[in-house]
Amino acid sequence: MKLKSSICISAALVSLALYVLLHSDGKHKVRVKSILDFLSPASPQLYKLDAGWPRNPASIKGVPYDVAVDHLNSLVYVAQRGDNVSKVLVFTEDGYFKTAWKTNTLDMPHGIFAVIDEDIKSIWITDVGQGPYGHTVKQYSPSGSLLKTLGTPGIAGSRLSPLQFDQPADIFIKGEDEVYIVDGDGGMNNRLLKLTDDFSLQWILGGNGTKPCQFFIPHSVAVDDMGRVWVADRGNKRIQVFDTFLGEYIGSWDTCFLEDGPYSVRFTADKKYLVVVQLNISRMLFLAVPPVGGIGDCNVVSTIQMADGVRPHLVDINVRTGSIYVAELGAEQVHKYVPC
């Protein structure tokens, strides 16, 4: 076990060194001193950087905001922003560029989520733009054809009938009939919605504030297998957890986020850890997931300190291989971390 751990640590350091060499000029400039801070000496290292992903970093010409993994077809979808760039790029799991969507129905993608099983294949994107397609949550085919739009395109609002959003940040779909949306990147709504399979409202929580069930810029949402909804309450520097059935408050974590709020919530493939990134301090945390019921106190099991200015935003997990993909605003790149 000690030998495996040492090999993993060495490989992680070599990977970061390669990262520095590969991205030492232009917009990907990083500081070599960050190598010294790459690993937390007090915690085990669970993941290491795959410095060869993507194979051609220049294929990402915009700023990637989120990433979604299709584990059945070994594909990775990257949602990016920028002038004269495709808003969604598709890569193979090995990091080779495959295709770019040609859709013109996206203003500013924020969150992206892949619904992949044997019968249903679709890509959901939250659009925070101020243009004619913004303030919506949209469903696309894997090739980029628009299938469905939730919200009122181009109009920010709080109404539930017809449904309106104000820069919805993230979506998570569980099973066949549970749709969760955090609506609050614009600061107006600060709410969590649960929709049914026909997209009618089942329950809603929120309001701007610091009390339980209130939010300040809810940024990411995920659901575990124990009937709990996890929300990155970014502005309040905490994670709140609710029951999926009625939306009842279970608990919150804030002691892990004194330096910067949580930007992502996703579970590792083995469901043991919650993966959280902190954008302003370029850090990725692995938090122990408690068993069914109350969540107790926040427990950081491992950390990865990225280079200064990388600014990780949102992540996704390959549930088959365990790999983690991180969309980075500062580095303007997506990077892959693999289990040690």
Rank of each mutant, 00 (worst) to 15 (best):
Pro44Asn: 13
Ser43Met: 13
Pro262Cys: 09
Cys213Met: 11
Leu285Gly: 03
Ala68Glu: 07
Asn84Phe: 12
Val69Tyr: 02
Asp297Ile: 02
Gln167Cys: 04
Thr255Cys: 00
Asp197Lys: 15
Ser5Ile: 09
Ser282Arg: 06
Leu205Lys: 15
Val275Met: 07
Arg266Val: 06
Gly26Asp: 15
Gly206Asn: 07
Ile7Gln: 12
Cys213Ile: 01
Ile155Ala: 06
Ile155Gly: 00
Ser141Tyr: 10
Met226Pro: 00
Gly209Trp: 11
Ile123Ala: 07
Val326Glu: 01
Val277Ile: 04
Leu75Ala: 11
Val289His: 11
Phe215Ser: 01
Tyr263Gln: 11
Asp177Asn: 14
Asp270Trp: 02
Ser40Cys: 14
Ser34Arg: 03
Asp170His: 13
Ile171Phe: 11
Glu248Ile: 00
Tyr263Gly: 09
Val69Arg: 02
Ser141Arg: 08
Ala327Asp: 07
Thr196Arg: 12
Val319Cys: 09
Arg81Phe: 00
Glu332Cys: 13
Met284Ala: 13
Gln214Asp: 02
Trp101Lys: 09
Ser34Thr: 09
Pro168Leu: 09
Ser43Thr: 14
Gly294Ser: 08
Gln305Pro: 00
Gly151Ile: 04
Pro41Cys: 12
Val334Asp: 03
Gln278Lys: 15
Gln305Ala: 03
Val275Gln: 07
Gln305Ser: 10
Leu147Ser: 06
Asn84Tyr: 13
Pro64Tyr: 06
Val63Lys: 09
Leu192Trp: 06
Asp225Cys: 00
Val63His: 04
Pro218Asn: 02
Ala58Ile: 06
Thr268Gln: 05
Gly186Met: 10
Ala17Pro: 00
Asp225Glu: 13
Ser141Pro: 08
Val137Leu: 08
Thr136Asp: 06
Ser302Gly: 12
Phe215Arg: 05
Ala269Asn: 15
Val289Lys: 12
Gly209Asn: 04
Met108Glu: 14
Val229Ile: 07
Leu150Ala: 09
Phe242Tyr: 15
Phe215Glu: 04
Ile217Asn: 03
Cys340Phe: 11
Thr149Ile: 02
Val30Thr: 11
Met284His: 06
Pro212Phe: 01
Arg238Val: 00
Met188His: 11
Arg31His: 15
Asp119Ser: 14
Ile120Asp: 14
Tyr249Trp: 08
Ala12Ser: 15
Gly296Ser: 06
Pro290Asp: 00
Ile35Phe: 15
Phe97Ala: 07
Phe216His: 12
Ala42Arg: 15
Leu163Ser: 04
Val223Asn: 05
Ala114Met: 15
Leu72Phe: 14
Phe245Asp: 13
Val69Met: 03
Ile173Arg: 12
Leu22Asn: 01
Asp70Thr: 03
Asp50Glu: 11
Lys2Cys: 05
Pro168Thr: 12
Ile317His: 09
Tyr325Trp: 08
Val277Glu: 01
Gly309Cys: 06
Leu16Gln: 12
Met226His: 12
